[in-house]
Nucleic acid binder design. Structure first.
Lengths: 238, 238
DNA sequence: CGATAATTTGATGTGGCTCAACCTACGTGG
DNA sequence: CCACGTAGGTTGAGCCACATCAAATTATCG
């Protein structure tokens, strides 16, 4: 029940009923986190891996002036810091955007899964490499797209991810981020983010207000943004 | 012998002699590749994983005009496309920069390692997450640093990686890339890359010519570029 | 209801792109 | 061995996308 959204829409069906029960039973406890709170700081030894049951979290790095660069935004169904299991410590910080409910899995349970349940282990590995694929797309976005396209691309990605776990109907969804947050994700100032959102609205592609997104023309937005969802490995969108 | 550089300087000592022999024995064949040739194209099913014995390779994505964004540069000791094992197909292209010697490991050997050698499997997982950590740093670089710092940061990263596998003495090393290549890695035009290299030379921080790098003041360059090597998980540089 | 953060808009500055020219090095074929 | 084509490297002029700075307005929340 807790982990119903894990790999939903991706390769969940490759997991046997037994494996799903093992994963569910690996949760040692469930915690509620406040909005805008730090979960793990860079360098800390990681004793638990965190699965996000509901809410929105982000991973980020600070520059020397304390300005953030988001490197990932996580939604329900994501194993947020499974990276910390092989790495043992993280190279970045993890924080909540909204209030969140998370499930914690102690590292010795994952060790046991590695030893005894190789198919499940491979799916856990797979889920961390989805993050890596998204990281690559973020590099592409920042390196090759202009500001309007970066914003469009980011929203296309979030829409596709949320749709995979039933949080978007393909047109409307909730994304509780502020314009400064969005700027930190897309590599621009909040002022410029504001202008880009206005432009996207004026071009009748999408609108964003108070954390609610409406995709007026998803196909046109994807085209503008050079968004091709194949890197998300979502079954229906392959 | 073939895989002597695998995880060298990182956590190689966690692998038993047996595990190293198993890994070595998993190589089905060794191949020599020409410079500037494509190894794997986006979307192709991945039947082998490629370990880079010697040479330089890169991973990249094209935009709609065919302009490249590099997302990684690989050196000796890297398991270049182990990502393809859990993912089954890649979301990007892989190509050589120089002539390369590679070792191929069929996917069923890795399946066997997953089933029978969980410690080795965890190290393989770890090595793919090193790539993810580097991806995050590239996001940070592109999102938060100006052009001079992006270039400096890139060279600091390459120096640290090459030093870990004995290809840099901390001051001089070979990096057989062109200025257009470097531009594609750092998100700028080759024209601007040229000017940034000139600036770094004039500031007596580093110089680059004909694929030879000299770090005149590595510490100052790292400071300018906000380079902190902890994300590379290199033992001596922790 | 006061404090704080987010949103919005305008004015101005600039970092990096574009376009263009020319130079050098190198590989290839005549 | 030279002629030629091609790719990389270098430099300059001009421009534009985005940052910066500033200020007013509107949520949000203790």
């Amino acid at each position: 029940m807790l982990l119903d959204d894990f790999l939903r829409g991706r390769r969940r069906d490759r997991l046997s009923h037994d494996d799903l029960e093992i994963l569910e039973a690996s949760v040692s406890h469930v915690k509620d986190l406040n909005a805008r709170s730090t979960l793990i700081s860079k360098g800390e030894p990681v004793q638990f891996s965190t699965y996000l049951i509901d809410g929105f979290m982000c991973r980020y790095m600070d520059d020397r002036d304390g300005e953030r660069q988001l490197v990932a935004v996580h939604v329900a169904g994501d194993f947020v810091d499974l990276h910390g299991y092989p790495l043992e410590r993280l190279d970045h910080d993890i924080a909540t955007l909204t209030a969140c409910r998370v499930a914690l899995v102690p590292r010795d349970r994952i060790n046991w899964i590695m030893e005894e349940r190789s198919i499940l282990a491979k799916q856990l590995w797979f889920s961390t490499l989805l993050d890596a694929a998204m990281h690559r797309e973020w590099i592409f976005r920042l390196g090759r797209l202009d500001a309007v396209s970066r914003v469009g691309h980011f929203f296309c990605e979030m829409e596709a991810k949320l749709r995979a776990v039933g949080r978007s109907d393909g047109q409307m969804f909730t994304l509780p981020m502020t314009q400064p947050d969005l700027g930190e994700a897309c590599g621009m100032t909040s002022v410029h983010m504001n202008r880009m959102l206005r432009e996207l609205k004026e071009r009748r592609l999408m609108s964003f207000a108070a954390g609610k997104v409406i995709m007026h023309d998803r196909a046109a937005l994807a085209k503008l943004s050079e968004f091709d969802p194949s890197y998300l490995f979502i079954e229906s969108a392959a």
